[in-house]
Design a protein around this nucleic acid. Structure first.
Lengths: 234, 234
DNA sequence: ACAAAAGTGTTTGATCTACACCCATGG
DNA sequence: CCATGGGTGTAGATCAAACACTTTTGT
């Protein structure tokens, strides 16, 4: 029986459960982290898991992902990107389910801590991810790789920082994504040459006595780069 | 009603039709082309369309895509990559359908012409794509953009050429993907410096009196680059 | 002998890398 | 006054871009 033979018969086709799982990255000024949840139900009740839900109603997949994020973190309008589809026939023993994984980048201070606690959620360092249900460890691995690649070509890293931030913090963010140290002189040269940062005259003295200047994005130039892509091959 | 509330009840969830649509790229020694099909059924019977099918049985999405390609072109083991999911609620007036688009690269001389004709299929130049059903024009646009990006960082372009090929042909392939002319001296320097080509002592004289040397891939080095990624920023 | 495509190197500017010291401040 | 992290510049290497002529051979 060919797949393409019956392409015309909508009504004799199999319908399938469609889920969205979210890999939520955050940054706590030192480390890139991942938000994980205690699974509430069988199978695998109580195990650590990505947050996810079945797609229903008239939501697009992307809208479903946005809504999951809102329900779990209270955040709207955050960076969210489709990762890939996970569809092995037996990936979920509960039923045949395909899952379209999404990853998102949030500023770790912004989210609604009460909502997160309500969900039995916890932030994990990337090198301390526990065993997760189903194929969620693979999703995480894929998401980390995707993030590392993407951050080289598009200025999405900023989504992990609050509105105002210092260059040393931005550097630590990139270091925690790339998992290696960067030379601060080269880093500053490179990032400043992109012309997407606006220096303020305020300083953040929480990390040093001298204090570091706070910067914010030049939203307009940032948007241009976001669509065009760039090379930030640190 | 929250999405995340009912995450635990497999049996009360909506099941959805899941399709795969394939953007099939080919190269005919001059131009990058796309394989399009006459839709066989309502709605939109007779219109041009990507080839697709509903996912069923115990196939993963990727296996379904592979099988569609085999059924339409007779080709196995060809380059195939997930593009993205299309899931607007009303994208298909026949029913709610989400489609996971895949793109693939095939050597235009390899495929089974009888199979393709059996399917009422035709190769189109990229600048002559007709109106397609549903959101298939958007899929094509997204696939072309993805291909342009991907070909800069991974040596996937070779999948569009036969086993033995000349450097001028390879250059024309890249030119047709990038849609701009390349300097042949710089092109040869760059591509040869990757050390993934093996020069044979045979010449292809079909395009010139002098003839151009035939090359093939160094499969081993090629595979290493394929996973590592590289920069082919022409 | 000539038309048509294949093949080949060099120079210039831009970019990346490696590297070490002074500054400002709170305690 | 000193410990801590913030901030700055330069020289050498590597890489990308621009550019034009010679070679081969079928007709």
């Amino acid at each position: 029986m060919k797949l393409t033979d019956t392409a015309h018969m909508y009504n004799v086709q199999q319908k399938i459960l469609v889920a969205v799982d979210c890999i939520i990255f955050g940054f706590d000024t030192q480390n890139l982290k991942l938000l994980l949840f205690k699974r509430k139900v069988d199978p695998f009740k109580g195990d650590w898991s990505l947050i996810g839900a079945f797609v229903k109603g008239n939501l697009s997949i992307n809208d479903a992902a946005k809504q999951i994020l809102f329900e779990t973190t209270g955040l709207k309008d955050i960076y969210l990107d489709e990762l890939k589809t996970y569809s092995d026939y037996n990936r979920d023993p509960g039923d045949r389910v395909i899952s379209i994984a999404h990853y998102s980048l949030i500023s770790i201070n912004d989210f609604d801590i009460e909502k997160v606690e309500e969900f039995d959620a916890k932030w994990f360092n990337l090198d301390e991810i526990p065993d997760l249900v189903l194929d969620h460890n693979q999703m995480v691995k894929d998401a980390v790789n995707r993030l590392r690649k993407k951050v080289k070509h598009q200025p999405i890293g900023f989504n992990l920082l609050p509105e105002y931030f210092t260059l040393p913090k931005l550097q630590r963010l990139y270091e925690s994504i790339y998992q290696r140290e960067l030379d601060s002189r080269n880093f500053r040269k490179k990032i400043l040459s992109q012309n997407i940062l606006i220096k303020t005259d305020k300083k953040d003295k929480s990390e040093s006595k001298k204090g570091a200047f706070l910067y914010c994005f030049d939203k307009d130039k940032f948007d241009i780069l976001k669509t065009k892509g760039y090379n930030f091959d640190i």
